[in-house]
Structures are given as C-alpha cells and as structure tokens.
Write a protein that binds this DNA or RNA. Sequence first.
DNA 1: ATGAAAGCGCTAACAG
DNA 2: CTGTTAGCGCTTTCAT
Lengths: 355, 355
Amino acid sequence: MRSRPVHSAQPETKSHRRRRGTGDVRLNDIAKLAGVAPVTVSRAINAPETVAPATLQRVREAIDRTGYVPNLLAGGLASARSRLVAAIVPTIAAPVFQETIEALTNALAVAGYQMLLGQSGYGESREDALLEAIIGRRPDGIVLTGIMRSPRMRLRLLASGIPVVETWDLTPTPIDMLVGFSHESIGSVVADHAHASGRRRLAIVTAADDRALLRAKGFADAATRFGIGTALASEIPVAIASAPGTLGGGRRSFAELLARHPTIDAVFCSSDMLALGVVTEAQARGIKVPTQIAVVGYGDTNFAADTVPALTTVRVDGTAIGELAARRIIDRADGREGIPPVTDVGFSLIRRESA
Amino acid sequence: MRSRPVHSAQPETKSHRRRRGTGDVRLNDIAKLAGVAPVTVSRAINAPETVAPATLQRVREAIDRTGYVPNLLAGGLASARSRLVAAIVPTIAAPVFQETIEALTNALAVAGYQMLLGQSGYGESREDALLEAIIGRRPDGIVLTGIMRSPRMRLRLLASGIPVVETWDLTPTPIDMLVGFSHESIGSVVADHAHASGRRRLAIVTAADDRALLRAKGFADAATRFGIGTALASEIPVAIASAPGTLGGGRRSFAELLARHPTIDAVFCSSDMLALGVVTEAQARGIKVPTQIAVVGYGDTNFAADTVPALTTVRVDGTAIGELAARRIIDRADGREGIPPVTDVGFSLIRRESA
DNA sequence: ATGAAAGCGCTAACAG
DNA sequence: CTGTTAGCGCTTTCAT
C-alpha cells in the first residue's frame, strides 16, 4: 500500500491479530516508558498543572524520545470535544473574507483548535452534503461567512446543537450567535456622503451577491429619501456584474450605465475591484474622476489607497470579525456564560480622492 | 452549559451514568429502529452495494426519520482513515494559491474528504505546533503550497508516514509527491521575451518570497547569458518589496528603481499586483507603457486582461494543481500503484499590451 | 447478505 | 497527585 519508510516496525505489544492506525506509538507506550498510568500521560499533555513536576518531566522525556503525537480523533471521541471549528465560505476566491479567515485560523490555532474549511457556493445539493460532512466531524463550532438563508440548512444546523456564529451580516434572527454589521447602513452612509458632496445623479455598480444587493438597497433608499436619482425618474440606475466583482466587470458595467444614463455623477460599487474598473473605464474615455464622476468602492482592499486617484471606500474590520467569531466559539466550548448573541462591529467610510 | 434547544432528550438507553457527545442519535439507534445489527447500518452507509435492497431501504428510512449523522471521529478512529486532508499555506491572503485551494477543496469534497486549513507563515515555533496539530488528526494526506524548506519539519512529515504533496514548486528532492512547475524557467522565458522584443536594460521588482526570488534568479541568469543588464554593469537592478506584493509596493519599488537606474526599459514583477503598481507609477510620471517601458507580471490574476494597458503576464494553472494534488492523495488512500511522484504542470506566457 | 465480538486510542468518572 | 475502570461510536475480522 504505502511504500515510504515508516518510523519503526509495528509493535506487537498488545492484541492478537489487530489492525493499526497510521501513528506507531500510542499513549500507552509513553505510559510504560515513563512508568506511569496512561491517564497520567493524558494529564501531562492536556493539564500539565495537575501533574507533579518530576512526573511531568519523565513523561515529557518519553514523548520527546519517541516523537509521540497524540491521536486527536481518539481524544475527540472520548472527550466529546473535537477542538475543530468549521468555517463555511461561499468561495475562497472572495478577497473580502480573507482577512476574517486568516484571523479566525490564527485565533483558533493559538487556542489549540484547527479549522475545517468548506465552500458552500456550489448549489443546494452540494451544500447539503457539505453540512452533513461537517456535522459528522462534531466540530466545537461552525462559523458562517454570511448568514445562512436556506431554511432547511438553518434547521439542520440548529438541530445539530453545534454553536454557530454567522458573520458579515446583521439579521434580527440569527441561528445562534452573530458578529457582523449592517450592509444597508453602509449604503445609506455612502449615499449621505455623495449627497453632501453635491452629487445628484447617483448610480450603482454591484455584483450579484446578497450582501452587495443589500448595500445597494440602502444606498438607493437613502437617495430616494433625498429625492435624488437620475434626471427624471426617482429610481437609481443599477448595473449588475456577475459575482465576484472584477476589474473587467466594473469597466463593462460602467460602460453600460453610461450608455443608458450619460449624466450620472456618482457611482457606488460593491467592491474596490469593481470601483477600480469603473475608474479605469472612465480614464479610458477621458472622463475625470472625481471631477466629473465620483466613485466609491467597498472593502478597503490593499490597493485602494494607492490607485490614481486613491479610492474612497468603506472599510470593515475583517480581522476583528474573525477574532470575535473565534472568541465566541471558544467561550461556548469553555462553558462561559453571558456571551453576547449579536455583535455589531460597524464600518467606516474612508474618504480619499475618488469621491 | 449550552442553552439552546437540542433535538430530543438524552436517551438513557444504555449505560448507568454516562457522558454523551453532541449528537443524540447513534448507529445503534438506527440499527434498532431498522431491526438489524449495527454492522449492517455501517455497511448501508459505507458500502450500500453489499446490503440487500430491502434492508438498505429500511435503514435509509430510519436514518431519514431521525436525522442521523454518522460520527466521523469514531469512524476515523476505528478505520484508521480520517477522510481528512490538511492543506498548509503560508497565508490565506496570497491570491495565487486561492485557485489551488478552491480546486483542492472541491475535488476533496466530491470524493468525501474534508479539508483542514493551516497557515504556516508565522515563524518556526508556530509552524512546529501547526504540524503537530495536523499530524494529530491523522489526515489521509497533507498538501503543502510551496515546498517545505525547514529540515526539521521535513523530517517530521516523513516520520509521520502521511502522504505529502508539495505544490507550486519543483525540487529534485520532494518529501513524497510533488505537483508544480519551475520558477526559474519562468524567469528565463520572460527574459527571452524581453530580449526578443529588443529590450536591453532589464530590471526586477519582486516580493521577498522564496519562489518569487527563484523567478528573479531565472530572469537575471538568462539576461546575463544575453550579456544584457544595465548600461554598464552586468547585474540586473532589483527592487524588493515586502511580501505579499501590493499595488503600493509596486509603485514605490518602481520609483526607487527609476531613481537608481533611469534608463531601464523592461521590468519583470513577481505578481500582477506589483505590475499594476509599476504601470500606475509609470502613468503618474508620464512614462508610456509599453513604449518606454515594458512591464510583465505573474499570476494572470483576474484583472490582468482588463487593465490599461492589458498586462502581459505568466499564467499557471492553479486549478490543475489543486485537482492533481487531490488525486494524488486519494489514489494513495485507495492503495493505487504507480502514482507519479513528480508532475510538472508547466506555465504559459500571456502576451498582452504591457510588454 | 448478515451478525457477534473485539477493539481503534483516548479521557471522564470515581476512588484513594 | 495518581490510578482503575468503563466506555466514546464506529469498523474490522471472522463466522454463518
């Protein structure tokens, strides 16, 4: 089967005929080597403070000598704590979530947890299988980027009894816990800014994505309250690009928008990449940004400050979201009380040159 | 401890005083409901073709009725196959690896495996802990993005006996299996292209990253073979930006390069984002691309085709890498023979407008 | 095609 | 502080 060298020959220490797992040295072997009972080794590893220093020393030596790595599958089964947290993202390619995933992975690693990563963005049937596979691992928590909309899945998650943190959104009815912010508020704040800057013919370029559409809605609603929009209609012109937003998508959407509404003077984009596309297309056509048209992005991606002109955008602290999500799960696992079910991390409008 | 509703009350079916895991319904319960032995339920789930249709039917009904989800921790422990594959990336933020991770996750999910994600980019000590945690889960395979350089870690991986696939690089001495391509060849091919286009004063903007430096080396070596470089010296001017490469980093590096070597006529960048930065800085200074200076990127990121001018870049099929890596691991797990230890997926130079 | 028995490697519970 | 005992929930082996 395998053909690579293995640490040492199978020790026939114990049973009569048995199969054996990948690892060759077990807790028991360490116990024998150190001259203690297996439990003591377990304690030395998981709760060193409950073991006498001298014993600890002997156990540690035995571990170092053998290169023993505890089998966490067995540990998880016995303790009903897997020290595993599942994160479900629509797709790994979405750069907005990266900061969150990165912070989450780190915070979990520091606390001795591993992260199981799943992608949900492949239709209902696959999503069902994904959830099944995840629940089957009995993770100590599940972090969702974006709230879960499918009622079936929500029910399944609830029934599983596993702590769930939904993120990157705000909903009055979270499955369990939530760390996010209001997308509609963002749209509203951006519209305020455009209005305050004297813009009156607003438009939207957005990716076809639930949360992006929510921001667009907040923007459109606010604009409508101001009584502004295109020249005649009170409706805000919208161009929808396929998700995820790309530079090319931004260019094409802006071109399309311009063809239909040549007089627009501000565009709110659902991502910085789309915004950069709009700026690129504007420059290619000799339209001045921000003089003739203001452009606002979303995400404060690492290029936003260095484009020409520098992008005005909305920043969300993805790192904070990841860290808080980790904290919520760990607190639950530790049986802590009084964990806030909903946390709003807010956002900020970063004013640069493009608007 | 937990305060959310749980599926049903704890069934006191079995033991005298016992603790219980998260899930409430077990294989045994299904067996009783369906009127069969536990093994039969196990078979119905893992090898349905070995069970009589009528029996299968009854078992499936029982599963549907209860919402039973098998405990994979227990299954993994008993079978010594965890159906878990670990992927280790330097950081999640590196966009080049996204395609690979995405393809890997999918290919694994389809085959019934889950992916454990770990970040190595946080220094030796953390890397050690990471590896320990991963090995402890007894994954059926480990995929490394980039080869592992630390000898300690290489040894540890080897000793674990777990199948390993190194990716995104080519080395004569892989730990186990490898799916990658030659970074030096890329540099060499780009230098050829620059030379063939009549460029004679070449320069490099690179992130401080092992593989990027390898491409830079290939580029510099080829240029030296042509006897070209700056006006006098045969050394190629290099500006090093901190990893990961950003648009701002590209702008600053290019400015620095220009200050030292005002006559350069071609720049090879270690990422498309850096290349976009170079183009941006050039435009801000009124330097024409490609007329006055040619710019080549790396990655063929989704914006490369749509910038002005469109970026000439190097494309690597990250999806193929991910899929092949998954295949290698699954083939190993299935005990297949004749798995190629090294696979070179190659790359291609995408000629667009910037060079 | 189905079942009985025996663990996989670890930890919780209850002493001492 | 340390040990004994009894599983965690599943799959393997061997038998029918």
